[in-house]
Design a binder for these strands. Structure first.
Length: 293
DNA sequence: AAGAACTTCAACCGCTTCGCT
DNA sequence: AAGCGAAGCGGTTGAAGTTCT
């Protein structure tokens, strides 16, 4: 059995909106609001349109303070940052860019920004999503002019772990910028800092939205998972293959990470990462990285 | 000049989530 | 707790515009 249609398809107009229809919808919503019911709205407003279509037209085109046209460098940077972190969750990305709609950002990403970023890296389209996301993270780091985490003494697995640790901080709302400063001289510690406070009232809605989406626990598990003949690392939505055996990984990752906040930041991320045998099945050694707000 | 190829973006579709009963 | 309808969301489509040959 198919899904019940949301409206009477036969008596509903489809396709581009005419200026008259736009005016009707705009006038009606400005006078009466949406009434919390998009399905009933078109009939009340005298429109032969599906409620979903009206909602989309209003949200993406007619509502006040919509910004169209060229995206700024800053907007590009935010989009790249968030895409590298959370993927194609356009509504969350849009919530960080005033006046931009999720549809706009999605179109911009698919038609321009992706090509702009990948101009120097052909064949990315052929890769799967997690590979793409990893590469976007690397591109994003370069774009932010952060020095790449060059840790020549350590192996690729260590670098991958750095990347994942960094991306965890990236999951913070965009106003919680971070800075990664590898500091090998200091006992294999990696220092992170945030440069903005997350407590100002105008940011609280975004913070709440972030906590809603990522949980309030402030603790995430890093799993080293046996995959076929090798090992992989999984972290939230991230997965990365590792080219080392368990003992090598253990040796490489068994070091402490300290996340230090700058004096101006009221958030207090703290972290340590210690790989250890899983007491339950012994096959999934876990590291824990903790941070607190 | 013409039409093929490519690009853009508004709009649609259908699945998931939310909130009410 | 379950069921249902509406809202929200992301992937996809296709018409219109632009560029290329």
């Amino acid at each position: 059995m198919g899904r019940a249609p949301c409206c009477d398809k036969a008596n509903v107009k489809k396709g581009p909106w005419s200026p008259e229809e736009d005016a009707k919808l705009k006038d009606f919503i400005e006078k009466y609001g949406t009434g919390g019911n998009w399905i009933a709205l078109p009939q009340k407003a005298g429109l032969k349109r599906c409620g979903k279509s009206c909602r989309l037209r209003w949200l993406n085109y007619l509502r006040p303070n919509i910004k169209h046209g060229e995206f700024t460098e800053e907007e590009d940077r935010i989009i790249c940052s968030l895409y590298a972190t959370i993927g194609s969750r356009w509504s969350i990305i849009a919530s960080q860019l005033q006046g931009r709609t999720d549809n706009d950002i999605k179109n911009y990403w698919n038609t321009k920004l992706k090509k702009k970023l990948l101009g120097s890296t052909p064949n990315l389209n052929k890769r799967n999503h997690s590979q793409q996301q990893l590469q976007y993270q690397q591109l994003h780091q370069q774009q932010l002019h952060f020095p790449p985490l060059q840790l020549p003494q350590l192996s690729r697995a260590f670098d991958q772990f750095n990347s994942l640790a960094t991306s965890t901080l990236l999951q913070c709302p965009s106003y919680l910028r971070y800075e990664a400063k590898p500091s090998l001289e200091d006992g294999n510690m990696i220092m992170f800092g945030s440069e903005k406070s997350c407590t100002s009232s105008d940011n609280m809605a975004s913070l709440e939205s972030y906590l809603y989406n990522y949980g309030t626990g402030g603790t995430q598990n890093l799993n080293i998972v046996k995959e076929g003949g090798g090992y992989g690392m999984s972290w939230g939505d991230h997965q990365a293959p590792l080219e080392h055996n368990y003992e090598e990984i253990k040796q490489l990752v068994n070091c402490n990470y300290t996340l230090c906040n700058t004096p101006s930041n009221s958030a207090t991320p703290t972290s340590s990462c210690i790989i250890q045998d899983d007491p339950v099945d012994g096959l999934k050694p876990q590291g824990k990285l903790m941070y607190q707000f």
